[in-house]
């Protein structure tokens, strides 16, 4: 079974903060990490290979330094890695990202399953997984929390919904996006770390994936980020300390006035 895992390098958003005084983004010392949801995608890919055999290829579209996340993926058990990197990709919105990733996946060609994270923690759109599936014209199962069975070219999986889950079955090749509940990612092994160090990372530019230039980067992106600003700060709260009964009474009194 050949699996392609799509991962994204993201700034650790838990460290991206707004400076309360200057109102600027503070990102001094903010690390770049593998998008947390993609860690589950990597783990699931590796587990499936361990069970069914085959190969896991990890891909990312990003700047040259995104190579680091590919090496991390290899240390966690992925076999091959491709960095899709070209200035022509800069400014890609999800439509252009889906197109670019799909062209790379088409070039890899022999695949049964594409695995994406549920969403990236920077762009936060959750659009790339289903968008890639649609570009490749393959079926999808989004928000997968468990793969129940893979048999006779069919995959059966539990898809998390607002109320619970659905059991969905489809033919492969297909694309799934995964949520945190699907597994607990392993830590890199020593052997994995060594392999990651020496691994040769394939780099593909726009020309290598046979892409139509008008569908890449800024040019291929119908959306534009027009303005970025900080959310209004929450007003300072009222904190009650002391006798619990007294605190509760005061709080309920205030809430009553707010008519909730």
């Amino acid at each position: 079974m050949n699996i392609i895992v799509c991962i994204k390098q993201v700034p650790d958003t838990t460290e991206v903060r707004i400076d309360p005084v200057t109102k600027n983004l503070v990102r001094d010392g903010v690390k770049s990490i593998v998008n947390p949801f993609d860690m589950y995608a990597i783990e699931e890919g590796v587990r499936l290979r361990e069970k069914h055999g085959g190969k896991v290829t990890v891909i990312t579209m990003g700047p040259p330094q995104a190579e680091a996340v590919l090496r991390e993926a290899i240390s966690l058990g992925c076999d091959d890695a491709v960095l899709i990197s070209d200035r022509a990709f800069a400014g890609s919105d999800t439509l252009a990202t889906c197109y670019t990733l799909s062209k790379a996946i088409e070039k890899i060609k022999d695949y049964d399953l594409v695995i994406c994270g549920k969403q990236a923690i920077d762009g936060d759109t959750a659009q790339v997984g289903p968008g890639v599936a649609s570009t490749l014209d393959i079926p999808q199962i989004t928000y997968v929390r468990k793969i129940e069975e893979i048999k006779d070219n069919n995959i059966t999986a539990e898809r998390a919904t607002e109320e619970g889950y659905e059991v969905v079955q489809t033919k492969m090749p297909c694309l799934i996006t995964v949520v945190k509940e699907i597994n607990t990612p392993r830590l890199p092994s020593l052997k994995g770390k060594m392999k990651a160090k020496s691994a040769v990372i394939t780099v593909w530019k726009a020309a290598d994936i046979n892409a139509d230039e008008s569908r890449l980067g800024l040019k291929g992106s119908p959306t534009e980020v027009w303005k970025i600003f900080t959310p209004p700060p929450r007003p300072k709260g009222r904190i009650f300390e002391g006798d619990p009964q007294e605190s509760v009474n005061q709080l309920v009194e205030l809430l009553k006035d707010l008519n909730h």
Partner: peptide, 14 residues
Amino acid sequence: RPAFGGNIMATILS
């Protein structure tokens, strides 16, 4: 819309 986990807001046009 919020992005970066709600740490920033962005206005998007098409």
